[in-house]
Design a protein around this nucleic acid. Structure first.
Lengths: 356, 356
DNA sequence: TTGAAAGCGCTAACAC
DNA sequence: GTGTTAGCGCTTTCAA
């Protein structure tokens, strides 16, 4: 639509002029001051209908687009927030990212970054976003915590997600991980299982999500009077399907017997199920499997996967609400929001061995 | 680290001052001009070691971070590029997004947006990014095409992905969709299948990916002397697992017989496999299934999913390279890059009914 | 090698 | 309701 003034809209001309139309050009054409153009665009002051029309006409004629760098510089805000997740191709984070993109619509522009679970990258991403490109950050931290994290952030507004609030320093949104893990394992126990493995343990992380889910797992066993067995607590380097498959294979090749597995996320669980299938073991007949996250994939897997289901849309919504508040008032009291979860029971823990 | 000048770096003070340190503050502390500080940071001119040291010391002392809005305004570029995909929770796009994030590292900051396949949102996203927030766009278009698309873009550099270049107007990166689809169907034919369905047809789209894959499907049938059957060409509203499941169910409930299915993406295929399982049909014994995209999920599904595998990292790499070139020279000749693909044969099309 | 001055395009503050 | 002025923080001339 880049066309000569007054011309009928024609095809885009290749190689358009380099200097773009600025507000002053619009003002000149409309015969008003830049301030008035600004008022029309932002709607921040009353403009007479006649003036408004002249301005909007000029905007259309010149095909004017405001320059967001200039606006951001002047306003001191960018309207962008960062969403920093470990890995975007872990289904949970992909689904979460979608929820965030939807929740951010009309409020923020979302900048998605991934840390790949590496500490160095986690630091690098925080440093990069620190250059006043975003007004705040939603962070799913894997390595940084507490005072160290806050040092890196240098006062940047942040909402933590999926981790226990380290010393109440930051706003925080998560499900009750201990309780949710306990719910999952109690469900397995109610099925009559006693040799219940946990896949996804990460001993490196003392305060993170894996530690909380492990705690919930142990709580449930203890409450049922089942002796814990270290051989059933399986560590994994990551949270991908392959990690679950490797852990399951190792478990089956070891001496311990297993009749159920609680996996710390669905990807691990689906990897585990694959290995059980390859070994000719039946799910849930021989081994019941439950995951965590309730990703879409688990509704269609064979067998379909039971899982702890956090309200992902609520997580996104709450995070952005908390972040907005924190951006507007950095001294607001630190808040912690607990997100509802529920258990989705599907075939992988169905009472009957092969029910649908 | 916001602390009094000269003070030893201390813990972050909560509620730091609002005005951030600017380059002039650093210059003042180092006893140089802002220009010299700028030179140190950008490395664009030679600075004497002594001066450089004084400046870097001052930067550290004040914990100075450059303001990217100001820099962008001055430079006329933002260093950001937009990646616009239909839906981030379709596994293919999640994996692709990860590849893009990795390929962009150190070159661009990536802004990911999704269109949800809706035309209005596709337009809205392009308009929003048009406000000079990104230097260019990688777009996976579903609705806009050709001259209409270019009108919306208003000269913004763009690389299209996954679609046939409409009239050679834009740079473009994709696998040879017709050929790849044909490869997949020929593989099914080589297995001895004759009643081969296609799932994922979208008649709305005449030039898009679905149309190309349909063309390849028909080519393969024709070349093998197999009569096409409109009843085997199944439309789906979207490209999620549920869409594949619904299409497969409809197919099985219809009068046509089926012994193989070519799905236009893996999510559709996994949905279809789920329904086949529920109906007690064996894959590949009764119905062979092949998908497109080679997502990680298909390596772990039961049965594992045969698929056409595009080189996703290469797609990301090529897109960003083309985009960079286009940003630097808007009148560069339009280029089209074809990405390699290969067939991954897994259990869902294994010759033996239940081989691993 | 470094400094001074100007200005990127916008909006906040204050006139009128 | 609208205009004028100034300046956000940086980098790019042009001089020294």
């Amino acid at each position: 639509m880049t066309s000569a003034p007054g011309a009928f809209p024609s095809m885009t001309t290749t190689g358009s002029a380099h200097r773009s139309v600025a507000m002053r050009d619009v003002a000149a054409l409309a015969g008003v001051s830049p301030k008035t153009v600004s008022n029309v665009i932002t709607g921040s002051a009353h403009v007479s209908p006649a003036t408004r029309e002249r301005v909007t006409d000029a905007i259309r004629t010149l095909d004017y687009r405001p320059n967001s760098s200039a606006r951001n510089l002047r306003r001191g805000r960018t309207g962008m927030v960062g969403l920093i997740v470990p890995e975007l191709d872990i289904p949970y984070f992909a689904e979460l990212a979608r929820c965030f993109l939807e929740a951010a619509e009309g409020r923020f522009t979302l900048l998605i970054e991934q840390t790949l679970g590496e500490r160095a990258r986690e630091e690098a991403v925080l440093d990069a976003l620190g250059e006043q490109v975003v007004d705040g950050i939603v962070l799913s931290p894997l390595n940084l915590e507490g005072a160290e994290l806050n040092g890196r952030l240098r006062g940047m507004p942040v909402v933590l997600i999926g981790e226990r609030p380290s010393e109440g320093l930051n706003d925080h949104v998560a499900v009750d991980n201990v309780r949710a893990a306990r719910d999952a394992v109690e469900h397995l126990i109610a099925l009559g299982r006693r040799r219940i493995a946990a896949i996804g343990v990460q001993r490196e992380s003392r305060i993170g999500t894996p530690a909380l889910r492990l705690a919930g797992y142990r709580d449930a066993l203890r409450a049922a009077g089942i002796a814990g067995d270290p051989a059933l607590e399986c560590e994994t380097p990551g949270y991908h399907r392959q990690d679950g498959a490797s852990a399951m294979a190792a478990l089956l090749e070891g001496p311990a017997t297993v009749d159920a597995v609680f996996c710390f996320n669905d990807a691990l669980a689906l990897g585990a199920q694959r290995v059980l299938y390859e070994r000719g073991l039946r799910v849930p007949g021989d081994v019941a499997v439950i995951g965590f996250d309730d990703v879409d994939e688990g509704r269609f897997s064979v067998p379909s996967l039971s899982s702890v289901s956090p309200d992902k849309s609520a997580i996104a919504e709450q995070c952005l609400t908390l972040l907005q508040r924190r951006i507007e008032d950095r001294s607001a009291p630190v808040r912690e929001v607990v997100i509802d979860h529920r258990l989705r029971v599907r075939e992988s823990t169905a009472p009957a061995p092969h029910g649908s």
